[in-house]
Design a protein around this nucleic acid. Sequence first.
DNA 1: GCTATCCTTGACCGATCGGTTTCTGTTTGG
DNA 2: CCAAACAGAAACCGATCGGTCAAGGATAGC
Lengths: 200, 200
Amino acid sequence: MSPGPQKSFDVEEAVLTARDLFWERGYDGTGIRDLEVAIGIGRKSLYDTFGSKRELYLRSLRKYADTVIQSICDGLEREGVGALANLERVLGKLQKHHGSDGSLGCLLGVAIGQIGADDEELAAFLRGVLDGMEQAFERCLREAMGAGEVRSDLQPRDAARQLVALSQGMALLGRVSDGPARSRSIIRAALAALRPVSSS
Amino acid sequence: MSPGPQKSFDVEEAVLTARDLFWERGYDGTGIRDLEVAIGIGRKSLYDTFGSKRELYLRSLRKYADTVIQSICDGLEREGVGALANLERVLGKLQKHHGSDGSLGCLLGVAIGQIGADDEELAAFLRGVLDGMEQAFERCLREAMGAGEVRSDLQPRDAARQLVALSQGMALLGRVSDGPARSRSIIRAALAALRPVSSS
DNA sequence: GCTATCCTTGACCGATCGGTTTCTGTTTGG
DNA sequence: CCAAACAGAAACCGATCGGTCAAGGATAGC
């Protein structure tokens, strides 16, 4: 039923390569020729496998989103330590990844910045991903508030949305920042604002 | 010394038109043909006046930044009311402008999202603009803290950077949000986090 | 060996890109 | 009236865009 050789390249790895290219140069800035060369396959294989440039782009975004969402949810729900400690660790990781020198920012944020005004399909997908992040943050915040680790007068949903916006803003600013100082300040301020009491 | 007619179009108004086009469609998405039609001048005049597409883009960004920075600084330094009230008003204005439905986000944020990895000239300009916003926020925060309107245990610089990141993040998310609820949450949380005491 | 399937290469397509140039008014100062 | 400086329209440039297509090479089952 299937004579002939198997695919000579790993499809999922090709998606990762495409993701990195889109990440670095954006959708418009990444040409079909660039993708061919980077992935190392011919154009026919590329179109046979992925259909179109846009489909490959959406697939790259989906893969990236799955990874990021999974990582954040896992980090926020780790047992054994306090919820606030989980939050601190996750925010620290985000700062390290997206706030350092030469950062490309978050691929999702870059996608939002480049989305066309009438691209409702992509907008809906991105909304969904952001909702997932927001809910993970909200669960963690509720738990931390229950344990008295976070000011109890805050609205968990508002604070969660704030953290999502903050993460995206930090990642965006990281694209033009000249060092990790700014992003460290941002995370420090976010955590300080959550703490119930403090004296310098 | 200057025979011949005056320029038949308003240069500054042309920059505003170009700004709106870049804002709506991004740099790559805006073609020279689009700019001609929108501004209403021929291509020769366009190149004679502005030099190149990129120069017109930079000029648009500069004009936008001047307007925004001016507006924020004026709003934050208004006398007669408390510094926190000024901050609340400015953040509310940002939310109204960038967080509503169909928002295009902040042009500066969009530019950051679309900047090329090796475009140091544009990156330096954007860094400068963000620094200006940060300093304006920091001055306002210091004043508010001095008046006891804001928790005194916060670091003004960290909090100012947080507000810049938050503004950019909110404006970015506004591009895919389906209503003003999210951006309102974000601003509400930011202000709640600054307040020294509260018992909802 | 034959055939079918997958792969790659590379030519090719119409369209559009940023930018230059040529031409034809048209308006102004002298 | 004339020359200089301006304007706009459009032809034109090489390059690149996303996408298609036709021709082989390689590998598998029969």
